[in-house]
Write a protein that binds this DNA or RNA. Structure first.
Length: 296
DNA sequence: CCGATTACCTGCACGC
DNA sequence: TGCGTGCAGGTAATCG
């Protein structure tokens, strides 16, 4: 499921119920997801209150009043749902009432806030997600975030930074954009979409949109613009809905209605004046969708 | 060092 | 209908 816009959508769904709340109970239903849970996972969380509900790239970070932070990654198929235990709901929240436990409910957090109590349930069929607990003071240097690249949102990402980051890289542009050590948070869908918007081929060597002095090029400038745009639009839309991905309130995201290249193999390219057909190729083992005619 | 491939796991769509 | 195959948003480990 989740690239940065989906994770940000999850964060925004969790924040009203988690921020300021106390974790009263944790049910850890198996010893591991992709990796083992950290030692004393349940004990380190129960009784803690949540001071901050943040996101870094595709990671969720709940900072606790214990000096530790809960770091969570949704992998490919992870999702959260919220089941309110009391009628008192917050404005704008329309969560499903409590229901039966579902298959692959691996962690259930019981949380109690000022106005509502709820179960926050982590479900992950493929178990590529994981959870960890690290000292808040060591978040930036912990194994998950040390060496991680810049966020693709905001001013950090511009033509200059892309030019600098991709300089000398012989890898395909697609692979460079997926490299979390350079830019952190992009995934397969939004890379395909940004490249389509920028009119750049995913097969082109990354270095070919850079300049030796590290200054922006027309291409690096266009690419940074379209990355920021597509990510912002997707967040605005509440993330995409791939297969069964849902927001924490059970609603489907609806950005999928606007995919221009991703999963559109064989369809006519919708770029104005372009008569190309969207093609699917495999790069580093993953599908790339692009228009060979207008993406150069 | 770098870049490319494989591994991890379940569910679903598809063709026969 | 059942069964085999391929594919899916992720990162980490391994291989040249």
């Amino acid at each position: 499921m989740p690239e940065l816009p989906e994770v940000e959508t999850v964060r925004r769904g969790l924040e009203p119920i988690m921020l300021g709340a106390t974790i009263t109970k944790v049910a850890q239903n198996r010893p591991d997801l992709r990796f083992p849970f950290p030692d004393r996972f349940v004990e380190r969380l129960e009784g803690a209150s949540i001071n901050h509900m943040g996101r870094r790239a595709k990671y969720l970070v709940a900072e606790l009043d214990t000096g530790e932070a809960l770091v969570m990654h949704l992998g490919m198929s992870g999702s959260f749902r919220i089941e309110l235990e009391e009628a008192a709901s917050l404005p704008g929240m329309f969560h499903h009432p409590r229901s039966e436990a579902k298959a692959h409910d691996h962690v259930v957090f019981g949380v109690k806030g000022g106005t509502a109590s709820a179960q926050v349930i982590y479900n992950d069929p493929r178990r590529f997600g994981f959870m960890d607990i690290v000292k808040t003071s060591e978040l930036a240097s912990c194994k998950h975030f040390a060496g991680m690249g810049i966020e693709p949102t905001g001013n950090e990402l511009n033509g200059d930074t892309i030019s600098r980051l991709f300089a000398g890289k012989s890898t395909p542009l697609k692979a460079a954009l997926l490299d979390q050590r350079l830019i952190a948070g992009l995934g397969n869908i939004y890379v395909c979409e940004a490249l389509w918007r920028a009119g750049l081929s995913p097969r082109r060597k990354a270095s070919t949109i850079t300049r030796k002095n590290g200054m922006a090029t027309e291409r690096s400038e266009a690419l940074s613009l379209h990355i920021r745009d597509v990510i912002a639009e997707a967040i605005e839309a509440g993330g995409s809905s791939l297969r069964d991905h849902r927001q924490t309130n059970g609603d489907l995201g609806y950005f999928q209605h606007r995919f221009s290249a991703y999963d559109r193999e064989g369809e006519a390219c919708s770029k104005k004046g372009c008569s190309g057909i969207i093609n699917r190729i495999v790069q580093s083992g993953r599908s790339t969708f692009y228009c060979p005619k207008c993406q150069r």
